[in-house]
Simulated scan of single mutants.
Amino acid sequence: MTEQNARDTDEPPLAFTDASYAFGDVTVLKEASVELQSGNFTALVGPNGSGKTTLLELFAGLRSLDTGTVTRPTASGRTVAYLPQTPGFRSGFTVRETLGFYTDLVEDSADPDSLLGEVGLNDAAARGVDELSGGMTRLLGIAQALIGDPPVVILDEPTSGLDPDVADHIFDVIESVASDGRLVVTASHDLAAIETRADRALFLSNGEFVLDDDPKRILEATDTETLREAFATVFRTETSGVTRPGANGGER
Rank of each mutant, 00 (worst) to 15 (best):
L115Y: 12
T186F: 01
K30L: 06
G51L: 04
E57N: 13
D66W: 00
L62T: 14
T27S: 13
R138D: 00
T69I: 12
D18N: 15
G88H: 06
R72L: 12
A247S: 13
L14A: 00
A125G: 01
G49K: 02
G49M: 08
T54H: 14
T69E: 14
L140R: 00
V80A: 14
D25R: 10
V129R: 04
G141S: 06
N206E: 14
E229V: 00
A43G: 01
L219Q: 01
L121Q: 11
L162T: 05
S205R: 03
S38H: 14
T226Q: 03
P151L: 07
T222P: 02
V129A: 00
L116M: 02
T27M: 10
T74V: 09
N122K: 12
I142D: 04
A125C: 09
G207M: 10
T79D: 04
P47T: 05
S76Q: 07
G148A: 13
L83K: 09
A143I: 02
I218R: 04
L115M: 08
V242F: 09
F41V: 08
T86P: 02
G77H: 12
A143F: 04
L191Q: 05
N40S: 15
V177M: 11
T54K: 07
R217W: 08
V119S: 04
A232R: 11
